[in-house]
Design a protein around this nucleic acid. Structure first.
Lengths: 126, 126
DNA sequence: GCGCGTAGGTGCTTAGGACACTGAGCGGTA
DNA sequence: TACCGCTCAGTGTCCTAAGCACCTACGCGC
């Protein structure tokens, strides 16, 4: 890429480490293995799917004690490393929810201010 | 090395490059200089104020053609580099608004799914 | 044997963000 | 006048997340 940002679309999207929060939630809903989570993440808004990044994150989260993995045979394909949530992971999921509420609030604040600007001065509810 | 994330609070918060979006908006509302923007950013949700990062970002955005700066005497203190928005910058501001609406939608989706989980009401998704 | 879908992973590079630090102009005051 | 504190603008440096490419292995059908 050129040194100067030249894309015609903002590069930003999701909060840092948002994938971690999603993984905690998904694994809490139902223990799952990486390949499965990859597909679920896609539905959650992670368009550019990056298996490498996902697997790295999962291993890191296990090392930090947020997840616990165990190998399970698959029947159709190689064995799966299945993850479940630890108590610590559950605490973090709650903490993440708080952080993301704040994120949504701040982004929402930006958007109302943006809308007020483009609509002139009058404020209106969307 | 490998300090193995041990913070007791999620590190994530705001979307990548969110400061850029805010700067476009703020400068559009009213041309301003860096020190001024620093304080306005604080009110917008940027708690850990980082002058270095801000000034670097402003210079970068000017190099990309989103902002235009000019020196103005201050009367009380050193001269100020005052920024205004270019047409291209305006386009990017609109594009950012779109991106951030999507961000808010995805984060909101996470939060409703989280709330459904903790409330035990898991019979419905968006 | 071969390709294909499933499953899990490594290497490498870069862009952003965090944190520390520098330096200059100007006013007040001790 | 010497110092301090506020205003204003930067630089240096490190760390991490993110992005991209690439690799291995299992099992099935052809």
């Amino acid at each position: 890429m050129t040194p100067l940002r030249d894309a015609d679309e903002p590069q930003g999207g999701l909060p840092k480490n948002f994938m971690r929060a999603c993984l905690l939630l998904l694994v809490r809903e139902r223990p799952a293995h990486g390949y499965d989570l990859l597909e679920q993440l896609y539905e959650l808004g992670f368009g550019g799917n990056d298996p490498g990044g996902l697997y790295r994150t999962l291993r890191a989260m296990e090392q930090e004690g947020l997840l616990l993995s165990s190998w399970e045979p698959s029947g159709m394909g190689p064995p799966r490393r299945t993850y479940e949530l630890t108590d610590e992971g559950l605490d973090w999921m709650h903490a993440w929810a708080g952080t993301l509420r704040e994120t949504r609030r701040i982004v929402g604040h930006f958007l109302s201010r943006y809308e007020a600007l483009v609509e002139g001065v009058s404020s209106r509810n969307d």
